[in-house]
Computed example of a mutant assay.
Amino acid sequence: MCRLLKRLLCVILFITISACNNSDVYPISTFGEDLEVINSVISPVILKDRERQIVVSSEFQGRIFTSTSQGLGGTSYGWFNKNILLSDSVLVNRSKIGGEGRIWFGPDQGPNTIFFKIDEKTGEKLHAAPKDLNTLSFNILAQSSGSVKLGNKLHIENLKGFHFNIEVERKIELLKEDYVSNFLSNSFSNNLSYVAYKTNTKMTNVGEQDWSKETGLLSLWDLGCYHPTPKTTVIIPLKENVDNATVYFTEIDSTRIVVKDKVLYYKADANYLNKIGTLPEYTLPYFGSYSPELNSLTIVKFSFNSLDKEYVNAHPVNVENQYRGDVINVFNDGKWGEVGPFGPFYELETSSPAKELKVGESVSHFQEVYHFKGSKKELNKISISVLGVSIKDIEIALP
């Protein structure tokens, strides 16, 4: 009864926050407000280093719901679906919650997809997330004030009818100041507000069959949902200039995507449903996003070996080569015909390579996420140091 009352109060709080925010920017709660909503439903793990905190859930498969660089009153960096979280069906809809760090498995489209099934009665192809991804909790395997390790075994079936039995272990740790300072080198400043964390996920084939390309492969897929603003821009440094990125769902033009001087700029304003990606031959192991409205810069650094050439292809149309897929993906929410919007949010996503795992073999994938908040001068130093472009370059890249 107590938890139900808290949930009702959180619904009222959520509606109030949405009504009172600046209309030029989508509603963004404080970390404390988001934490109150989460606490009304589950008992999360809070990793904390002074004002820097992240919310991790074992009930939602090692998901990072959100983070803050400025304590309870600071901006909540992650977006998650409060309507679903506060609904009675939440524990059978875990895959739809969002959050700024969740583990999925690719591909979600194409002949090897794990997000569709064939209806036995009609023969129709129906969209459906794997049951375990929607209903299974993870176990806490180890925990300290700054890190937590979680995991469980999952069963996943692809459209071809191949059964994957996997064991997943996911370690999440808050990154300390000396680690962040070393990463940024001379661009680090004590005037910055920041929070940073690392996720390292391992997937092991614990079934009775080796995996093969013919029957389909899985990849580890790490996705983060963030709050968009009208001028949010994603920045993806490239090994070389490309004519365009991989484009999904809808067409886009130079008002939304530009490649200049080996850097891809993409508008992430949650105002047009679209998705892009970069192939391994063009990929570097870092990218980010910048919001002038929020005075914030996000950097994602991830595991990537240029010798790995094969990634699952999740394109819904271009399916000729099922192992010529993207390493980086960016999803922009919005409305397209009768579809969407789903948030509003945008996603920064990275994937592991596709591996033919024999029984007992594993593949791992890590991400480091850095949120920086501060003056344009301080953010500019980081942007130049890590992404190779200035804040001015980012601001004038797109109309």
Rank of each mutant, 00 (worst) to 15 (best):
L284A: 02
I252P: 01
D34E: 15
L273V: 02
K262N: 11
N191M: 08
F183H: 11
K309N: 04
R3N: 07
R102L: 11
Y194H: 06
L8N: 11
V37I: 15
S254A: 10
G360R: 08
K309V: 05
K198T: 14
K301V: 14
I42G: 06
L85I: 15
S29W: 11
E395T: 14
K213T: 13
A19D: 00
S144M: 00
E36L: 14
L35E: 02
N313D: 03
Y290H: 05
G62P: 04
S69Y: 10
D308F: 08
P130M: 04
I235V: 15
N182R: 11
L398C: 08
E356P: 02
V300T: 12
L5G: 08
F302D: 02
K377D: 08
I114T: 15
I396Q: 11
K309S: 04
N205I: 09
G123D: 05
K309E: 06
F31K: 03
L47A: 03
Y272K: 10
W104M: 04
E349G: 03
T215N: 13
S57F: 07
H227Y: 12
N93W: 02
P111Q: 01
N21E: 10
G360S: 09
G388T: 13
V195M: 02
I97F: 06
D308T: 07
S375I: 13
Y77R: 07
K301E: 14
S296E: 14
I54H: 05
K260D: 12
F372E: 07
N134I: 10
T283W: 00
D308H: 12
V259I: 15
G98D: 03
S95N: 12
V317T: 11
S385T: 12
K239D: 02
T229Y: 05
P230V: 01
V92T: 15
K239P: 00
Y370R: 03
D34N: 15
Y311F: 15
P111M: 07
W221H: 07
K160Y: 14
K202G: 04
S364C: 09
L141P: 06
K121H: 08
S193Y: 15
L141V: 14
S43L: 06
L136M: 10
G78P: 09
P44T: 10
E347L: 04
F366A: 00
G151H: 02
G374Y: 07
S303C: 03
L9K: 13
E167M: 06
T350H: 07
T229V: 14
S303D: 10
V258E: 12
T30N: 06
P237V: 13
F115D: 09
G343L: 01
E167N: 13
K176L: 13
T283I: 00
Y265L: 01
P228Y: 08
L150R: 04
K309D: 01
A19M: 09
Y26Q: 09
S303T: 14
P399L: 04
G73Q: 12
Y290R: 00
I15F: 14
N152L: 01
K125G: 00
N274V: 07
V330R: 06
G98E: 06
I236T: 10
N139R: 13
D326Q: 01
K358F: 00
H371I: 08
Y370A: 00
N186D: 13
S189K: 12
G207K: 11
V11D: 06
V259N: 05
S23A: 14
L273E: 00
P107Y: 01
R256K: 13
